[in-house]
Design a binder for these strands. Structure first.
Lengths: 114, 114
DNA sequence: TTGACAAATCGACAATCTTCGATACATTTA
DNA sequence: TAAATGTATCGAAGATTGTCGATTTGTCAA
């Protein structure tokens, strides 16, 4: 098994002085992970929750089936944005602290341009 | 012709207290616009340039054909991230100031969670 | 008006994505 | 061990996307 870094770990800021193909790919992967309304809502629900949220509590607010929600949670987790925690037979998800900070840094162009 | 707002104009921050379906869609559209390595590189090139950049100066650095670059420029412009300016027969593009600030605000979750 | 050239659009194809029902896996409880 | 239940994976269908060659549109100069 090869260790694969998450997009959020590899991505470079939009305003980086230079940006090679690999960094551009990782940065794009990060944004792509947020490029779906269901995943935007998941991140929003986790951000406004007081703590980790059970996957089973997402089906109804999202109006999506269990496999579909599981799919989106996996995409966000693979991107490095979410943390998964097993509690008995339930799966709890929370925002990954470092990823949140990295995301803000990647999307911040104010200091580079304009 | 109906006036259509750009995603960047309609989107709500990831950390908004509430997020209806329409806002989630606009926010996702904004991220989707940045969810491609070619478009990430375009934004990076424009961010690090001193001023507007001619479309013709993007084909070679990106290694993509003229129609493909034009396609990506349109996607970014439609999202509200780029400004297009016609200079003779050339098309110049630059980052849209307000959009850049909005993007940073949308992606910033630090004040909401963690 | 005509010719030249840059950019946008069209048409097509392959690849990827979203979604869900069905199924397999994992964990707890009887 | 067996039953129950929450989650992940599989397989498939329909939609969307990225790419480019060919063509059209728009702009300037003869």
């Amino acid at each position: 098994m090869v260790a694969v870094e998450t997009p959020v770990a590899c991505c470079a800021p939009l305003g980086a002085p230079t940006l090679d193909e690999e960094e551009a790919l990782a940065t794009a992967e990060l944004f792509k992970a947020l490029g779906d309304p269901a995943r935007v809502r998941i991140v929003n629900l986790l951000a406004t929750a007081r703590g980790p949220v059970c996957a089973c509590d997402l089906y109804e607010p999202l109006g999506l089936s269990q496999p579909t929600v599981s799919h989106h949670l996996k995409k966000l987790t693979d991107a490095g944005l979410l943390e998964r925690e097993q509690r008995g037979k339930w799966a709890y998800f929370a925002l990954e602290r470092e990823a949140i900070e990295k995301l803000a840094a990647v999307a911040d162009l104010k200091e580079v341009c304009c």
